[in-house]
Nucleic acid binder design. Structure first.
Lengths: 211, 211
DNA sequence: ATTTGATATTGACCGTGGTCATTTTCTGAC
DNA sequence: GTCAGAAAATGACCACGGTCAATATCAAAT
């Protein structure tokens, strides 16, 4: 007789709360908020890579166990925070007008590139969670990548690009090149050329209209 | 007054041993071999993700500290083992004849795809180390990616592909799509379509000759 | 054979992420 | 108010990766 551990991540329960309103004590919301705030403080001081669960709970004034009752693990907390920021960026992108050249497209992506490369550790977390995610439940980062895909597809559909491939496929390609460029950025060998420049090179070839 | 910790990873010293032959005791080589053998055993039993440093040293009959005198950290050991296997595969690839179609190209890459997706954890390590690597010193996995790049460039140069872009750039693109396909493979959302099929789709568009 | 300085090994120890049985707090029914 | 059951919070505890001062071993010089 074996027992199976099923983890209930409260954040998930909250996210997918259905209309049959089960009791969510506002105590829970408060604690959660305290944890997130504390985490943001710690990150501001020590960077994402310097985040320690101990520090967070101390700052939030709760016990260690409480942290892990709210977030499945440290990654889940970071997913929330990083995914949140990326989500904001994509929301901004939606309000921009459709870029008509590769250079314009890339310059729209610059803030994102900056953020994703602000720390090696951040990039690692994103890689782990973005599509490549363990995705037992789809997290904020993966969600935001979905958003991004939609935006890019939308842009592709009404731009001067090649038409011999689905917009969605082309959009997926852009994401692939984005990650590639970031990876090379962190690589000792290739760190000469700036990311934007390299991304432009890839996309010129990828999106070039077939004449 | 601050002190700086400089780590001497013996593997590195051995790898880059210059002609001024400094003393390498064969004791060292033996211990290193024992550790690698033990690690391979443990992996065979528990998988890459189930590898525990304690198990390895116990099996190798050495102390914990010895492990970390030979490998900077657990990742470095995995880098060695995984990178070794990938290097073998690339050596095989070099002896194949140049593929003339996307389907042929992809089918050459199938063993690699299989290996890289054998465990989520393996893929994570590869991502962390491949170009995206912290690369203070370039490790076996990163090296093997360099190898792969050369092979792909070589193939591209003498295949029926588009000629409006450098072979190397196209090769880099193939690597990007390879990782993308693997990432999607591990994603809950997209795990329907097999990797090879999706890779073919990407590469048809990426390599298509511009007419 | 002995000394000496470099190299390799050891294992007690630490930091940190994560667990879980227990306790506290909440809420709704009476 | 109070009681019962559920939800939330607690903190001692564990697992595991990694460190480092101390020790043992080696090899070259005398």
């Amino acid at each position: 007789m074996t027992t199976v551990n099923i983890k209930f991540d409260r954040s998930q329960k909250l996210g997918y709360r259905c209309f049959m309103t089960k009791p969510v004590q506002q105590r829970t919301l408060k604690t959660r908020a305290k944890l997130l705030a504390a985490a943001r403080d710690v990150i501001a001081e020590h960077g994402f890579g310097g985040l320690r669960a101990d520090q967070v709970v101390k700052r939030a004034g709760v016990a260690k166990g409480t942290f892990f009752a709210h977030f499945a693990d440290k990654d889940a907390l970071l997913d929330e925070i990083i995914g949140g920021q990326m989500g904001d960026m994509f929301r901004d992108m939606q309000n921009r007008e459709v870029p008509k050249s590769v250079e314009a497209l890339v310059s729209e992506l610059v803030p994102l590139l900056r953020f994703m490369s602000c720390e090696r550790y951040v990039f690692d977390v994103i890689l782990r969670k973005s599509g490549a995610a363990a995705c037992d439940a789809i997290g904020p980062i993966a969600m935001s990548f979905g958003q991004q895909l939609e935006i890019l597809s939308h842009w592709i559909e009404r731009g001067p690009w090649r038409t011999d491939a689905d917009a969605e496929l082309l959009a997926e390609g852009i994401q692939a090149f984005l990650l590639q460029v970031l990876a090379l950025h962190f690589c000792a060998l290739h760190s000469g050329k700036p990311m934007e420049e390299r991304l432009v090179e890839y996309l010129l070839v990828w999106l070039k209209p077939v004449t």
